[in-house]
Design a protein around this nucleic acid. Sequence first.
DNA 1: ACAGCCATGTAACTTGTTACATGATTTT
DNA 2: AAAATCATGTAACAAGTTACATGGCTGT
Lengths: 207, 207
Amino acid sequence: MSVRQCLLAILDQGPCYGYQLRSEFDRRTGSSWPLNVGQVYSTLDRLERDGQVVKGGADDQGHVFYEITTAGRAAVRLWLHSTLEPAPARDELAEKIALVTTLSGADASRMVDEQRAASEAVLTALKAAQRRPDDALDAADLAGILARDARVFQAEAEVRWLAHVVETLRRAPEAARRPVALDATPPKRGRPARSAVAEGPDTTVAV
Amino acid sequence: MSVRQCLLAILDQGPCYGYQLRSEFDRRTGSSWPLNVGQVYSTLDRLERDGQVVKGGADDQGHVFYEITTAGRAAVRLWLHSTLEPAPARDELAEKIALVTTLSGADASRMVDEQRAASEAVLTALKAAQRRPDDALDAADLAGILARDARVFQAEAEVRWLAHVVETLRRAPEAARRPVALDATPPKRGRPARSAVAEGPDTTVAV
DNA sequence: ACAGCCATGTAACTTGTTACATGATTTT
DNA sequence: AAAATCATGTAACAAGTTACATGGCTGT
């Protein structure tokens, strides 16, 4: 969803042609992602299909410009005014580590250690490449710096969490360190019996 | 990719049928993601197509068991022995904020502020729902706790980064606070002239 | 001539995801 | 009978991604 929204937001600044969109995306997100040109065109197709942009004719140089529509502008405004939930995004690493701690035949703490080393190495590399924001020439430059900083902060969190996992595994009660077997008990079919005891408070996170 | 790998790793523990796989996935990742049952079946189809599982006949209760193949086991080992790059994942939020700081007609600092408030609220909620690992009954329980902790650490990083963005925007040189216009200069076509000056050192992050 | 970028596009594919249809089973 | 869960599956689609084909232009 993100590429699509970003391209639309750029088109909100004025008509662009495909190739141009890629370079604008690049500039404005600090080249944080090597966006394939092909994807620009397929994304433009989808945006057009959904009535958020219109395809203009080619100019004298053969550039095919796309223009945002009213509906498109509304979508941009909506996107900009909405806040992103921090956690709806899947966390592959967390899932993997959580899963591994329950598996038999996998050495969880060794795996966590290795991941930790890898993450630390990345963090070091990122920090070395960090730039001071003081000499940002323009907003695009600054955007690139902020995007990199985001990766640093994230990598730091990852390293911290991994250290926390190591500690937790070390301290965990013995029962929690044994792999869990597949649930052999056949589930009850049919409508579940309504339990006589009152339901406890909802402990699920509504986030 | 992650769902696929997780299901395969669970199948590595023993044959399972579709519905069972969902509940195992649930248990072992701390219900961090409401996996749709349908996806289990389509994923199993794809795994079978790729020769990593085989579909067995139904047992007396009508449960259709899937079994992992040798190739599947190899894939699991590979997955478990590989480390995940911390940043290949796209960061939608960072992209969005980076982009916004370059747009005209969007109030970047207001947007960042709002996002920060939202992220802080989430962080508070997550922290409130955090559990102590001391009373983990089994590894699945512990996995759930760790998965939640991961979200806490991530949310913390997000909040910290957003604060950093606010500060940076405030302190940034005036030139870096003006929106950047679309690049009007037509790009040079044809083979670029090889510059006479020696190329500077590569500043791109190889991560 | 050739390398290499600018530029547009298409075809094929991946994973993830939802919505729905179907039926068995069991409790209310 | 109605409700709710267990269980299997299909159809359709979204977004992302890559690989490729094509052609124009311009330095070397």
